[in-house]
Amino acid sequence: MTPLLSLRHVSKTFGSGPRAVHAVRDVSFDVAQGECLAVVGESGSGKTTLANMILGVFGQSSGEIWFDGNGLPTRRTLEHRSAIQLVQQNPLSSLNPKRSVGASIRLGLDVFGIGARSDRWRLVEGALEEVGLPGDFRRRPPAALSGGQCQRVAIARALACQSRLVILDEPTSALDVLVQARVLRLLEDLRRVKGLSYVFITHDLSVVRNVADRVAVFRAGKLVECAETRAIFEDPQVDYTRQLIGAVPVVADDELKLRESLSGGMLA
């Protein structure tokens, strides 16, 4: 089966000459339909840059990005724009401060022609309720919401667009673990029922362990390891992956044991 998303030798350089920043260096990976690929790694290693290229915010410097068997042009069609959605890293600044959050969600429905016109406010309220917010929050501006409430609005907005691939950039960093569990379950259900695919960018390795099919580990713009989730956590091949897992803050004793077995780097 052709993968839904394919990256082949993708690189991105900002600026030029001695001050150039090589944000992404020769990265290749696939995401199958219905798959959740976690992207983890160093801060500043190019994860958000990668997300922006897949979305078409800016083009890659070299390499190819394929979606559903076709090369993705830098200028995207309306169809591409509705098929690929992004939940941005900064919940508070990713929403238009001048619009009510309901209007922000509705905008996507209007542009992509989702649902009957008369039905759209109901869809907006339903989308809010699915992420645990009261429907009447739609009248509020982002400034009248908490960090985690904004983050949930951003998720609701992306999911309401009936896309096929959702790129989630730190989607649950501002949520308490109970609300987080609820949101993760919602994502899981959509994946099962509608075959949605996710690129799940996060620093929270405990979440990754429980939701991802595969994990891609980034460092300094490069993909250093990519494998099934279980293999990454139980038998990491690269020192950096081991260091990362060894530094995860944990709450339970059996977690400490796993961590210590890895951080020593003495794995068999």
Partner: peptide, 18 residues
């Protein structure tokens, strides 16, 4: 208690029951 029970674990085990 509910919060503690909902912390995802690095040892796996899936999403917590709510």
């Amino acid at each position: 208690r509910a919060l503690m029970a909902a912390v995802p674990r690095i040892t796996g085990g899936g999403l917590p029951e709510l």
